[in-house]
Every structure is written in C-alpha cells, then in structure tokens.
Amino acid sequence: MDIITITKENLKNEHICCAISNKEDIQVVSKKSWIAERLDDGLVFKKGNVRGKCFIEYIPAEKAWGPIEAPGYMYIDCLWVSGQFKGQGNSSMLLEECIRDSKEKGMKGLVVLSSKKKMPFIADPKYFRHKGFKLADTAEPYFELLYLPFDNTAEIPKFKPSVKNTAIQEQGMVLYYTAQCPFTAKYAPLIEVVANENDIPFKSVKIETTAEAQNAPSPFTTYSLFYKGKFVTHEILSENKFLKIAKALSSE
C-alpha cells in the first residue's frame, strides 16, 4: 500500500473521513475545513491510497488541540486502521512513517492520548505500549499520556495541571467538543436538540481555536460531556445513548 500525504492541493479530492463516503456530508466538510486550517501549524495527515479507515494524523505538540505540555514532541491525534485494512501491518507502516517524518523534523519523540484500558475514540494503550510507548502522565478518571522518546534525555511530557482532576464549575449538562473528529459535526448538534426537546438543562461549547483547546477542562477535547461539574464521558453519543445517560444521571 502506498501512503498519501494530505496537502492543501489534494485535500478537496482525497477521502479522509473514516467511514463517511459522501464528500459533501457536513461531517466531511467540517473535518476538511479543520484540517485546512491546521496545515499551516504543521499538521500532517497521511493515509493509505484507499477509501477507508487507514490513516494517521499528527501535529507538533506546541500546536496540539489538547491541554498537554510536551515541547519538541509530535502529538498523534489519531491512528486508525480498521475493516479490510486491519491485520496487514498497516498500523505499523503508518506509525513508522510518523516516526521517520518526526525524526527528520528534529522532534524529541512522539506523544499520544490514551486510556487505562482500550476505549472508543482513544488510542489503544496495548498497541502503543507494544510499540515502545511509556506512561508519561495520568488524568482522572482514566486518561493516560503515553510517549515514545527518540532520546532518553528528552523531557517527559505531562498534562496541564488544570485537567489532572477533570471538573468544571458549570452545572447542568455541558458538552465541550471540536471539529477534529468528523462525527461531532453531526452528533453534537443532535443531542442538543434532544436535550431541548426533553427539557434537559444543556449547553454546548464548540472549541474553535488552538488556545481554547489547550486550556480545555478535559484531556480529550474532541468530545467531553460534563454533568453538575463532573466529567461523564468522552464517547460521541447518539440521541438514544445520550437520553439513557441523562436519565441515569438525573435519578442519582
């Protein structure tokens, strides 16, 4: 399989959005717009020359959309290989390409947001540990920051102190999200509609800038739901899942 690097010139025509085939879909449009704005920040999106889930996305940590401190590191936003492309060494190929590229750019190493156990939408800890990544830091309730230094003298990355104990001051349900994942363009507005229809106190906060993301209240800026100030989940919810969670929380 050949690797294609997304550029401003080919972004419009390349398939980049996971399982979404329609390039006019709002999810695709939102994601491509987000990528276009990040390319000047050093964002790299590399994909197999296929239509499917086979890609890696990374960016210098100083420009990462996450509350971390990892100067000189490259931050992996997402490594996703699935479906017919899984089990063929494609994940390793993409990660090795990221390592090669990052070393050529003089980076100190790689860093990635993960979790204590495998969870949806977050890097698989078992896979990355198998590839040599080590634990750098933790944040409640289950987030882990993993890193792969290219030099053992490199400074260990860490979460910003503001997210060590994930919580916010606002009450009710509050959703923080970004356009980094295409699915949020569809599902974040949907649950806001459902909340209003069911008289559930709800507020959504779309993170629009790098600075906002780096000062977000959760390590996972793509999508984080809070209730009465406490973190609930990072999983992108359907309408039914949202209502189920809201009902459970309200009965506590």
Rank of each mutant, 00 (worst) to 15 (best):
residue 40 D to S: 14
residue 106 G to T: 09
residue 237 L to N: 14
residue 98 C to S: 07
residue 132 G to Y: 07
residue 23 K to M: 14
residue 81 V to D: 02
residue 220 F to P: 02
residue 42 G to V: 06
residue 129 R to V: 08
residue 210 T to V: 13
residue 119 M to F: 03
residue 49 N to D: 08
residue 214 Q to R: 14
residue 199 D to V: 11
residue 85 F to V: 00
residue 192 E to I: 07
residue 100 R to P: 03
residue 80 W to H: 07
residue 33 S to A: 15
residue 33 S to H: 15
residue 72 G to R: 13
residue 29 V to G: 04
residue 113 L to Y: 06
residue 4 I to L: 07
residue 219 P to R: 05
residue 51 R to S: 09
residue 89 G to E: 10
residue 72 G to T: 03
residue 166 T to H: 06
residue 156 I to F: 04
residue 192 E to H: 10
residue 150 F to R: 10
residue 225 L to D: 04
residue 196 N to M: 05
residue 245 I to E: 09
residue 239 E to W: 02
residue 124 D to N: 15
residue 165 N to L: 06
residue 63 K to R: 14
residue 4 I to D: 04
residue 195 A to I: 03
residue 113 L to E: 05
residue 11 L to D: 13
residue 92 S to G: 10
residue 96 E to H: 14
residue 105 K to G: 00
residue 23 K to A: 03
residue 229 G to H: 03
residue 211 A to Y: 12
residue 91 S to Y: 00
residue 216 A to R: 02
residue 138 T to E: 12
residue 222 T to D: 09
residue 9 E to M: 13
residue 29 V to L: 13
residue 124 D to V: 02
residue 117 K to T: 15
residue 161 P to I: 01
residue 133 F to V: 04
residue 81 V to K: 07
residue 186 K to L: 09
residue 46 K to F: 05
residue 210 T to N: 04
residue 243 L to T: 00
residue 54 C to I: 02
residue 88 Q to R: 14
residue 187 Y to N: 15
